[in-house]
Write a protein that binds this DNA or RNA. Structure first.
Lengths: 173, 173
DNA sequence: CTCGGTCGTGCGGATTTCGCAGAACTCGCG
DNA sequence: CGCGAGTTCTGCGAAATCCGCACGACCGAG
């Protein structure tokens, strides 16, 4: 039906080397990008539908998705707003470090209450998002566990009051 | 086969009213919580497997998941690290507002480059995460689009250098 | 008690997933 | 230029999953 995506796949989407100077996880061609986009719209979309959209067979899409998952390039998960779901306290913590930033970031990564860790340029070296049971728990994590890490110079907390937006649609606009 | 989960479902998981003073999206009982947890581990897990884990039939799980999706309580999507994926510049922006914070937050929500908006307590009123094509684009969004919003008193930017952790496993620890 | 709404279960039938074997393409090397 | 080695895509059946639908059970309101 409607032969839209003739998909001879001759030889054009090979410009993947564009992001070769990226360093970390490498090559990711236009087709994989398109697959990811499809799954960002609906993580449960059938492989056949994705294949039709990107011009690939069902099996090929399946193999690619599996590899992307194995490589850790993407993950398919349910996301919620913890505040909406209920019982939980959230905060963003800005951290200043003296010495090795990466090792502090690794220590934060190992904490189960920490959902999100990013190294930044600016007046904070690290931003970390924390999800806790309640205020006591939050206080404990920030004061006892984070501030006591050797190399942490100072922290500043931003307790979440309301989540207004949460999207995963980059590349789909 | 192994009558493990007899699932008489008599009357015990009805304490959903616990989070009734939540305001926004309402009741969400223990079973739905368990379903969400399953999907946080693997967004593509089959309904039958989830049903077996939470003690419900396949069809019931399907109906619940559909409703959670429709209500916007959760979404099942592929998530990636944009920096890993390639071409894009990210930053967190702290914003101070005079006047109505909510309306500023709404304005930010409408921008496609803004992925994440949260109202906070602390030295910023709003935190917003921005994903851009490149530095020029980022500069444009921050200086032209955000700073020019009426009511925005000041902003501070934290350009992302490296994403260290990104999880969606709250409640699964 | 009866009506209406919500929620769960149990079915087939359509669809999708899965595993596998063979074809096509890329790359490096003699 | 030719030729393996590695990778990726395709095309199948078979098994598992998804989907819609009808029926039964459980409230709360009138």
């Amino acid at each position: 039906m409607h032969s839209e995506v003739v998909a001879s796949r001759s030889a054009d989407q090979r410009d993947s080397t564009r992001e070769s100077r990226n360093g970390g996880t490498p090559q990711l061609d236009a087709v994989s990008l398109a697959i990811i986009q499809q799954l960002q719209e609906d993580g449960r979309r059938p492989y056949a539908a994705i294949g039709k959209a990107v011009g690939l067979s069902e099996a090929a899409v399946r193999q690619r998705v599996q590899k992307l998952l194995d490589q850790g390039v993407m993950q398919i998960v349910a996301v919620t707003d913890p505040l909406t779901v209920g019982f939980r306290r959230q905060a963003m913590v800005g951290i200043n470090v003296e010495g090795d930033v990466e090792s502090i970031a690794d220590a934060l990564t190992d904490m189960s209450e920490v959902e999100y860790v990013v190294m930044t340029a600016g007046s904070f070296d690290i931003l970390a998002e924390i999800v806790c049971e309640d205020d006591d728990h939050l206080l404990d994590v920030i004061n006892k566990r984070i501030r006591s890490l050797p190399g942490v110079r100072s922290t500043e907390s931003f307790v979440y009051l309301k989540l207004k937006k949460q999207t995963y649609m980059w590349g789909t606009r």
